[in-house]
Structures are given as C-alpha cells and as structure tokens.
C-alpha cells in the first residue's frame, strides 16, 4: 500500500458495557498500535465500565436480547446463564491470547494508546478519577475528544 494511503491515526469510541460491546474496540485499538498507528480510545456511557477498577474484569456477555446467542430469551434470564456464557467465551479467548479486560487496558497503555473517559458520563454516574484504572490518561469532554481526534479516523463501537 502506498505510504500516503496508510491510516496514521484512529480514535475509537467504546460506548457499550457488554462483552461484545467492549472487546471489538479494544482489539481494534491494540491492532492499530501493533501497526504503528497512533491510537486514542474514548470510553463513554456503559463503555466506561471497561476502565473502572472494580468493573473491568466483571464485564459479561448479554444472554438476553441477543439473537446471535441462539438461546431463547426465557432461558437467557436464568441466573448464572450470563456468567456461564462469559466463562465459556473467556476460555476461548485465552486460547487466542486475548487478555481479560483489565490486563488489556494495561497492555494498550503500555503500547502507547491514549485512554480517555467521557466527562458527561463520569458526571452522570457520579464518578471521579479514583474510580478509574491508573492507565486512564484523563477525563475529557466531547470538544477535547474532537481536538485529540484531529486527523484521525473516528470509529464508533
């Protein structure tokens, strides 16, 4: 590929707090760093759970309202079903060397990705900087997000 056509910078928004809401964004962010692409990740709404000390490793697969689970919603509501599905999926991911969320955040930070929490959501949920993992660079508003995303491809997940 011609050097000028290469993506140089990405800005990834993670807005959901389910397993499949969080992982694709993390994998894309890490993959970008692996390709030498400058990377910013912005966590908003329930996506914030991925960078919260007490929540990051408790993110679960949604077994209700998810047609691709091929599981009737009535069964999906059984206590433990979501934990079971999450456990199964984590085992498969471990085989592919995909780390648990908390470790993934550390890895992204070590790889040089910048991680930001959305201010509006932080205020809405009454959170403060201490609720977040130390790898989080800052809590920023939308205007700052766009400033930091100058020249980047913005990817919303």
């Amino acid at each position: 590929m011609a050097e000028s056509n290469k993506i140089k910078k990405v800005s990834i928004v993670i807005s959901k707090g389910s397993f499949d809401g969080v992982y694709p964004g993390l994998i894309m962010a890490n993959g970008a760093r692996m390709e030498g692409i400058e990377t910013t990740v912005f966590f908003t709404f329930f996506g914030l759970e991925a960078i919260m000390k007490k929540k990051a490793d408790k993110i679960k697969v949604a077994t209700v309202g998810n047609p691709a689970m091929h599981l009737p919603s009535l069964l999906g509501i059984i206590p433990g079903m979501s934990a079971f599905a999450t456990h199964k999926m984590k085992k498969e991911m471990e085989k592919l060397d995909i780390p648990p969320v908390g470790e993934f955040i550390e890895m992204l930070s070590d790889a040089g990705a910048e991680l930001y929490a959305c201010k509006a959501t932080v205020d809405m949920f009454h959170l403060t900087k201490v609720d977040f993992m130390p790898q989080v660079n800052d809590i920023i508003n939308v205007a700052t997000f766009y400033e930091k995303s100058a020249g980047a491809e913005i990817i919303f997940t």
């Binding site: 760093r33 692996m34 390709e35 030498g36 060397d97 780390p99 890895m107 070590d110 790889a111 040089g112």
Partner: peptide
C-alpha cells in the same frame, strides 16, 4: 505481544521501544 510478555518476560513497553511502529 502478550506471549512475549508473559512467557518471554519482555515488557510491552520495552517491545514497543525496541521495535517501534509495529
């Protein structure tokens, strides 16, 4: 990269500074 870290003892930070941009 994770295996290099966990099994090889090479930190991700070091790896990125030794072999920048990929």
């Amino acid at each position: 990269i994770r295996r290099l870290n966990k099994a090889g003892g090479i930190s991700t930070k070091d790896l990125y500074s030794l072999f920048p941009d990929g």
